[in-house]
């Protein structure tokens, strides 16, 4: 079962993943990461591990496990 791992401290809150997630599974956190950004949070119940977030992310926030 594939899974998305989020490195929240790399996130710069650009929003590309939120826009392009086909399942609307990504939203921004309420709190801030170590760089002061609201970071991407993945709703595992909606996520299908398609990798769109990995593809669109400029900052290497996402890893999709095998």
């Amino acid at each position: 079962m594939s899974k998305v791992i989020v490195s929240k401290d790399k996130c710069k809150q650009c929003g590309y993943c939120v826009k392009h997630c086909p399942k609307q599974a990504i939203s921004f956190s309420a709190d801030f990461n170590s760089s002061g950004f609201k970071y991407a949070v993945v709703d595992d119940s909606k996520c299908i591990a398609c990798g769109m977030c990995y593809t669109t992310c400029p900052d290497g926030v996402f890893e999709i496990t095998e």
Binding site: K12, Q13, F37, C57, P58, G60, E63, T65
Partner: peptide, 29 residues
């Protein structure tokens, strides 16, 4: 069918480009 996806190991660290800058994507590609 889902395949693993991980930033290439030859990228040692996150590069401090501005939020939303395209460089990060292109370097990864």
């Amino acid at each position: 069918m889902a395949k693993g996806k991980k930033v290439p190991e030859k990228i040692l660290r996150q590069v401090p480009f501005c939020p939303g800058c395209g460089h990060g994507i292109i370097v990864r590609l």
